[in-house]
Amino acid sequence: MIYLIFGYFCIATVGISIVALTRKNPVHAVLGLLLLFLHIAVIYLFLNAEFLAMVQIIVYAGAILVMFLFTLFLLGAKELSSTKRYTSIFEGRVLIGVATMAVIVGAFSLIETKYKGKYTISYIQEIGNTKAVGVLLFNEYPIGVLLIGIILLIPMIAVAVLAWRKNDTS
């Protein structure tokens, strides 16, 4: 039964990503991306990553996709669909992409992991996934948390500067 559900999610994820990226209307592409992120969140649940599944839904589906949709509405959908969709000579680029795909998939299907860490499934079941991630995050990577705060602050300043400059010239 678990194989059946996992097989559905595998096929659906690959199919949705193909369908989402080949839409002509960018709004449909963004909505397909939303469906893809929901499916990937369920695959995270297969992997005992409940916290990341919720973060995936909240941050990606809640924040980033809304940002995409706002950008689409700012640009106007009429101008977007009139441009050409693909580059003029794309066969060679598709060949490069397919070769990369063959290398990546071939290499990944041969990976064997020897290393086993100390965060076993029983340990995570004992204290919970979210608490385990939080304890690790704040005990071992406090500088990383601070740096992520700065990394999230700097784009905010950058976006504000970009928006201001546009008002000055007009």
């Binding site: 996992f6 595998c10 994820t13 690959v14 990503s17 193909i18 990226l21 080949t22 960018p26 592409a29 963004v30 695959i43 992997l47 995409f68 950008t71 689409l72 640009l75 977007l80 441009t83 050409k84 969709r85 693909y86 580059t87 794309f90 680029r93 598709v94 490069i96 992409g97 397919v98 990369t100 795909m101 990546i104 998939v105 990944f108 299907s109 041969l110 990976i111």
Partner: peptide
């Protein structure tokens, strides 16, 4: 390997579309 191949397929689909698409939103 199932998860890794799935991740590689998703990555490669994105890469192919990144190489050939012209619309910057896409």
């Amino acid at each position: 390997e199932a998860y890794l191949v799935l991740a590689g397929l998703i990555f490669s689909i994105g890469l192919i579309n990144l190489l050939i698409s012209r619309n910057m939103i896409i």
